[in-house]
Amino acid sequence: MNNGISPKAPAKEKIKSDFESLIRGMNWTGMIDCIAYDHLFDGAMPMFNKMYELGKKETTTWHPYPKEKPKSYTKAYLVTIVKHYGKSQVKKVEKDTWADSKECGEWEMFDNRPDTEVIAWAELPEPYQPESKE
């Protein structure tokens, strides 16, 4: 559905608009009344925002390396590496530090290994926080 939303709008706004169209259609056809529509709309929109924020926290965004390089020196990142074993290869996720080396930067553990290639990096996730028991 388009619902007057720009094709360039963020995915979150497109989903919210689709939901709003769905419940508006239910209201127009008499499946729900105006009070139910208001409750659904007012209750669901904050939930969409919470789900979006949760999704951002739980998503890893990979940056192709060396096309994109970290901007923070002496900071740890997740890296996807390819280990070369003769003609075979193994991809793994490791942790490495992007270090300032003659102002050009390098991975401390994996940059100078002829059998290992860093192909992507990502920010480390936030530490686990148990949910409060409110």
Results as ranks from 00 to 15, higher is better:
V82R: 14
K12R: 09
V93Q: 12
P46F: 06
P10A: 13
Y77N: 02
T74R: 14
E117W: 00
E58R: 14
M51P: 03
K92M: 08
N3A: 12
W62C: 05
T60S: 13
A9G: 13
E53C: 07
F110M: 04
K57P: 05
E58Y: 10
W107D: 12
Q129L: 08
E131V: 11
G4R: 12
P125L: 13
M109D: 09
K50G: 07
I32Y: 13
A122E: 00
K8R: 09
A9W: 04
K95I: 15
K16A: 10
L40G: 08
T60L: 08
E131Y: 07
I35T: 13
P70H: 13
G30C: 14
D111R: 02
Y37A: 06
E134F: 12
L54T: 10
E134N: 14
T116H: 11
E123F: 07
D33C: 05
S21K: 01
D42F: 03
A122D: 06
D38Q: 14
Y85R: 09
Q89T: 05
P130S: 14
E58C: 08
S21E: 06
E58I: 01
P10N: 06
K75D: 08
S132F: 05
I81P: 09
G25L: 14
T116P: 03
P130Q: 09
T116L: 10
G30N: 08
I15S: 01
M26E: 07
E58M: 02
Y65E: 04
T80I: 06
Y37S: 04
G86Y: 06
V90M: 03
S21C: 07
L124I: 13
T61W: 00
F19Y: 15
K102Q: 12
L40C: 01
G25D: 15
A11M: 06
K12I: 11
D42M: 12
L54W: 02
K83P: 00
D38T: 06
S6W: 01
W121L: 04
A11S: 06
S17G: 13
V90G: 01
M1Y: 12
I5Y: 02
M31V: 09
L40D: 02
E106V: 04
A76Y: 11
M45G: 01
D111E: 13
E94L: 03
Y128I: 06
M1R: 03
N27E: 10
S132M: 01
K67C: 04
G25W: 01
Y73E: 07
K67G: 02
P114L: 10
F48P: 09
I81M: 04
M47K: 15
M1G: 13
S88T: 15
Y52E: 15
H39D: 00
V118H: 10
M1S: 08
L54V: 05
E53Y: 01
F41Y: 07
S21F: 02
I81T: 12
G4M: 11
A99V: 15
D111G: 14
I35Q: 15
S21Q: 12
K67T: 13
